[in-house]
Design a binder for these strands. Structure first.
Lengths: 221, 221
DNA sequence: GCATTATTTTAATCTAGATTAAAATTTTTT
DNA sequence: AAAAAATTTTAATCTAGATTAAAATAATGC
C-alpha cells in the first residue's frame, strides 16, 4: 500500500533549491524550522494528551495550522511519531556525546550527561516525546528506534562500567542500575508539563538525586 | 451519547445471582475471574503493543475470545483502559498499605513498599498497565485516576518525610526524590515483558538500588 | 509587477477498528 | 432433561480521524 519510491515536494525541495550562493545551513531554514516546530508541538501533544488523544488537528492547532498542512512536512501520522522519537533519540545521544567529550572520570561523565539530557528535556529544545508507541511504528521505523534505544542504554551502561573501573562509582548491576536511572529520566515528561520553574528545579536536582546512590561508600571528594 | 443509567446484564448479575447459600466470594467467581483475566491481558497488550496498537481483537485473542465478547464485561474500550488503570492504582495502594501496616521506620517502610509493588508488577498479579493514556479517559474517569495517582505520590512523599524525621532517610527534596523513584518503577513495564528470570532480578535488586541514595551518610546499621 | 515555487486551506474520501443487535452456544438451576 | 440465565459469536453498522486532490494564498526570485 505504501510506495516509498516517489519523493514528495518537501524532500525534493531540499535537493533542488540550492541553486544560488547562499550557505546551505541558511537555505534549509524555512522548511526545516517549521518542521522542527511541528515536532516539538507533536511531542508536547503526545506527552500531554496521549497518542490516541492527539489528533493531527490538535498538533496543527498549536502551530496555527490546519491538519492537512502537516502532510506537507510528513507523509502520515506514523512518520510524525517516528520523527518525534528519532529526535528524542538524537538529543539523548547528543547529550551523552557532549559529556563524553569532556573526558571526566566515570561518575562525572554520568553527572554531566544527565545534566545535558535533562536540560534538553525541560528546556528550550524540549519537550522530548515519551516513547510510548514504538510498537505501532512500521517495522523499519520500529527497528531503527529500538536499535537507537538499545544503543543508548548500552552506552549508559558503559559509563557505569567505566566509573566502576576508575573507582568513581560503587560496584553495581549495571543493567538494573541503568534501567532504574533511565526510567526516572524517561518518566519526567509524564509529570512535568513545561512549567519553567519546576523545569529548573528538575535540572538542578535530578542529576544529584540519581547519582547519589552510585557513590562509593568511603570516597569523599 | 452515553446513558449511564441502565445496568448491563453483567452488573445486574452480581446483584441478582446470590439467591442461595454459597459464600459471596465464590459466587462472583466466574464473571469476576474472567474479567480479571481480561484486565491482565489488556494491560499486557497495552504495555507491549501500545494503546493505539492494541485492538480489542488483540486483547480478546489472548483470552481465546472474539472482540465482541469483551463487551460483555466492559461498556467500551475507554472503560477497559480505565479499569486497567484503576487496578494499577489499587495494587499500588495495596502495596503501600501492607508496608505501612508493618510499622517499620521510614526507610524500611519504603523498602518494604517497593518490594511489594515491584513484586506485583513482575509477578503473578502483573502485568500492571503503564498509565500512558490517562488524558484520553472520559472526564470522570480521568479525574478519578489522576486523583488516585496524586494520592499515591503524596503518600510516598509522606514516607520520605517520615524517614527524614526518624533519621533513617537523609534529608532531600521529597517531591523530586519521589518523582525520581516513582518514575523508575512506572517505567519497568516498558522494558520488562514478563520474563520470569529478569522479573526476579528486578524484584531482588530494584528496592536496594532505588533506596541506596537515600541512606544517611554516617549511619551504618 | 510577473512568474515560479512554497505553503496552506477547503472539501471530499476512505478506513480500521469500535460498537451493536440478534442469534447461537454453553452453563446453571431445578 | 427442560427451562432459564450466562456467555460468546456472527454479521452488520457506525464513526472519528487520517488521508488525498485540487484550489487558493503567500513568498521569492527576477
Amino acid at each position: 500500500m505504501q510506495n516509498a519510491a516517489e519523493l514528495k515536494s518537501q524532500d525534493g525541495r531540499s535537493q533542488r533549491s540550492s541553486g544560488k550562493m547562499m550557505a546551505v545551513k541558511e537555505e534549509e531554514t524555512r522548511f526545516q524550522l517549521q518542521k522542527d516546530r511541528m515536532l516539538r508541538a507533536a511531542a508536547r501533544c503526545f506527552n500531554e494528551k496521549g497518542y490516541s488523544g492527539s489528533s493531527l488537528k490538535d498538533v496543527a492547532a498549536i502551530l496555527g495550522l490546519t491538519d492537512a498542512a502537516l502532510y506537507y512536512y510528513v507523509r502520515n501520522k506514523e512518520e510524525l511519531v517516528y520523527l518525534c522519537y528519532l529526535r528524542a533519540a538524537e538529543l539523548g545521544r547528543e547529550a551523552m556525546q557532549r559529556a563524553l567529550d569532556e573526558r571526566h572520570d566515570g561518575m562525572n561523565t554520568i553527572l554531566s550527561y544527565l545534566r545535558y539530557h535533562i536540560d534538553m528535556m525541560v528546556g528550550e529544545r524540549g519537550p522530548i516525546a515519551i516513547m510510548s508507541e514504538i510498537p505501532s511504528l512500521q517495522p523499519a521505523h520500529r527497528a531503527e528506534i529500538l536499535d537507537l534505544s538499545r544503543q543508548h542504554s548500552a552506552r549508559f551502561e558503559e559509563l557505569l562500567k567505566a566509573g566502576i573501573s576508575d573507582g568513581s562509582v560503587a560496584p553495581c548491576d549495571v543493567r538494573m542500575t541503568g534501567n532504574a536511572i533511565m526510567g526516572s529520566i524517561n518518566w519526567i515528561p509524564k509529570w512535568h508539563h513545561g512549567d519553567a520553574d519546576t523545569g529548573e528545579t528538575i535540572a538542578a536536582e535530578f542529576p544529584e538525586i540519581l547519582t547519589r546512590g552510585l557513590r562509593p561508600p568511603k570516597d569523599q571528594s
